[in-house]
Design a protein around this nucleic acid. Structure first.
Lengths: 349, 349
DNA sequence: AGAGCCTGATTAAACGATTAATCAAACGCA
DNA sequence: TGCGTTTGATTAATCGTTTAATCAGGCTCT
């Protein structure tokens, strides 16, 4: 029943070579004082036997599990794959494992998820917080990835700057009236993106905001956004705050017989999986998740290694925002001259 | 530096109450022989102190880590969120944690990912195998989620039956010529879905296959699929083997001025995040991931608990395929009468 | 030559939980 | 009364690793 692990352990290697376990441990970790010849012999023999150190034994002794937690607001979020991938990659480079915890549901679920991770003994965790949630430092270091305007944010994409890039791109194409399409006004990320767009508008440009969740509260989920009418009113660019909303806008426009990008332009954020393969491919602003993850993880590890005592702090990094990259594809093009829009407007109304 | 965990441990509780650690352990686990009154007192005191058992200590003694691994072919896969969410949910119900491992890249990366998990001491793992990969049983129980036709598959959605549902749906709408759109002919899942569709075609119906990756090898990634021409040739339904391809088809058709579902129908698979929000919303076949995960995890846990010895087996479950559910939305509708298609065909060619 | 100093190894004590083995007391019963 | 059994608790070993403390030689230097 005891199901003792199959592989060899330190003492097996030790007795097999006629040395002490401490020497083997030292040889393999390169820490104590072991002659180079003996060390080499030990390493060889260990490799030969296929020695795998017991994480449990090590964790018990060192007080560190070698595992980080990853908490996500809603694991079904289309952004999740990239985040998880980047975090896992950054963690494994430092020989850490990643334990996932989904906080599907309400805010208490987020707290429960965090607690579960702590019970599992993670050395630290990365939290992508639920909207408008503040992470209370628990009993281990925490890195928060959200957006610069979130208090306690460790590192994130520079959503504001991303918005500015989108705005500059649209300005360059001659667009004057921009409809910004967001999902939820409580999202810090979306507000920063929208703010960035507005701040980047050139002289003579104006914008209006459309929050989908508000609309859906009266019109029902999955309802039309009424973009054809907006186009008729003279909006020539639809800047969604996420590719999911951009996709929704794009298909609705196309369904109404409005051509993208000939008639109007559509842009998104995040460069999600479908962005390059839809027709027209989406112009979008991409975050450098690999870099964000790298910064978050290294800040986390630094805190973990330095502070021996497992205090619950929210770690900080030197760079707290990573620039977004504008990806120009086919969904954005030159604005139609205003007069034609007027004509369209007359036809549509 | 030793960074001893902050919370109380068994011996702290024991001395604090004047009993032995063994008694405390027994009281909390309900295993040994402890009087009900004392047990109650111990439980109370433990809760009061906020006792959290050390996973490391427990793992070291019992030889079980309480952690399962999840290996995914490509974590960036849009299906990943649902899988991870379902697996994590099923695992946490059984008090297990989930460690992720991305096998981004080639087949060797998959093996490396599996090895990393084993080094971390997982008690078992769930593998969604890379295309055309056979999982060689390693040193812990493994559950494989792919498709029924994959040798060694533990449990999966009944992709074949899902295909039949799609076919039946299209047959009911009067479609005669179906274009099946897949990504990669080496995918067992896609082949089963396609096979299901073909097997479900009614009398007088015919189908043709289009593999996107093959097309892209000559025409370049992101190229047009030439669906307008196919529509002109008389195809009235486009059955994609995944919602990602369905989306690609839908937007391409819309861009060409072909109306969905008035002119042609489009269906997909998986009910991915965007399916309900695009216009028209996608008709698709959804897998019951929660149930699949539940079956996989329970089969895994059964093997783990039964076989004390950590052997590397691929576990089996009583039910190896879970029915898919057809979700009918707006992207599929009655087939246009053949003569009109002819007219369109004349116009287009 | 003896005191002191490296060098290269060993000893032994943790870390925290589980669990088989043991033990003391109380109880039942002839 | 005395023997066997049950109950309720303790003792002690164990899992595998790390690491401080110790120790035996060989070496240098005065």
């Amino acid at each position: 029943m005891a199901s003792s692990r199959p592989g060899p352990n330190l003492s097996r290697i030790a007795t097999s070579l006629g040395v002490s376990v401490a020497t083997v441990s030292n040889a393999l970790s390169g820490k104590g004082r072991v002659s180079e010849q003996l060390a080499e012999k030990i390493r060889e023999h260990a490799a030969e036997l296929g020695y795998i150190p017991s994480q449990a034994g090590r964790a018990l002794r060192t007080g560190r599990s070698g595992v980080l937690g990853l908490v996500l607001p809603d694991i079904a979020n289309p952004l999740f794959p990239k985040i998880a991938q980047a975090i896992e990659f950054a963690a494994k480079s430092a020989d850490y494992g990643v334990l996932i915890a989904d906080s599907r549901g309400d805010v208490t679920a987020q707290t429960e998820a965090i607690n579960r991770l702590i019970e599992r003994g993670v050395d630290g965790m990365v939290v992508v917080p639920r909207r408008a949630t503040r992470i209370s430092a628990s009993s281990c270091p925490v890195a928060v990835i959200d957006t610069a305007s979130t208090p306690g944010n460790t590192v994130a994409a520079d959503h504001w700057q991303g918005g500015q890039q989108i705005a500059a791109h649209l300005a360059g194409l001659g667009h004057k009236r921009i409809l910004i399409i967001g999902n939820n006004p409580e999202s810090n990320v979306q507000n920063d993106r929208a703010g960035g767009i507005r701040s980047g508008l050139a002289k003579g440009m104006s914008s209006e905001m459309l929050w989908i969740e508000r609309l859906e509260q009266t019109a029902g989920p999955g309802c039309r956004l009424g973009l054809a009418r907006k186009a008729a009113e003279g909006f020539t660019a639809f800047a969604a705050l996420s590719d999911l909303q951009a996709l929704r806008a794009l298909t609705e426009l196309q369904q109404e017989g409005i051509n993208v990008p000939a008639d109007v332009s559509v842009t998104g954020f995040d460069d999600l999986i479908w962005s390059p393969v839809v027709t027209p491919a989406l112009t979008t602003a991409r975050m450098d998740m690999d870099r964000i993850a790298e910064i978050a993880i290294s800040a986390l590890l630094k805190t973990i290694l330095e502070s021996g005592t497992r205090e619950g702090v929210i770690v900080t990094a030197e760079t707290d925002r990573v620039p977004m990259q504008l990806i120009v594809r086919q969904s954005s093009g030159p604005a139609r001259p205003a007069k034609e829009n007027l004509t369209d407007g007359e036809l549509a109304t």
